[in-house]
Design a binder for these strands. Structure first.
Length: 112
DNA sequence: TGGCTGACTTTCG
DNA sequence: ACGAAAGCCAGCC
């Protein structure tokens, strides 16, 4: 396929786009699914580059604790929480409630 | 080539 | 339970 130099970003985008509505995942989960657990930070960085692609629900990607660590990178810090709430995700103090239930692991859902 | 950065994760104190 | 440090990989200068 084209552009193998952005393969990593492409995979990240693909996985994030596959995140069902009302679900959230973690950077580490995506990185683990891609086989690069160590580059969990890169996943977030990839999201940063995803700004040119509004189809990517970056607000559904949170850290391992369910905290909206990336909200600071959005247009507005509150937008991420608002978007999650619009999808039915309860967010309190920048933290996703019932994170264990809301958690969507690509390696578990897509690993068939 | 070498070194720095990063929306993370895990472990030690 | 909280705080700090190390580890990890990919991209950019």
């Amino acid at each position: 396929m084209p552009k193998d130099h952005t393969n990593f970003f492409n995979d990240v985008y693909a996985v994030v786009k596959l995140i069902p509505e009302g679900r959230v995942t973690s950077y580490g989960a995506i990185a683990n699914y891609l086989g690069t657990r160590g580059s969990a930070r890169m996943v977030g960085w990839a999201m940063n580059a995803s700004h040119g692609d509004p189809s990517i629900p970056a607000h559904r990607v949170v850290n391992r604790q369910g905290l909206l660590t990336g909200k600071h990178h959005f247009v507005t810090s509150s937008m991420m929480q608002e978007q999650l709430e619009l999808e039915g995700v309860v967010v309190v103090d920048d933290k996703v409630q019932d994170f264990a239930q809301r958690f969507w692991d690509p390696a578990q859902e897509l690993a068939l």
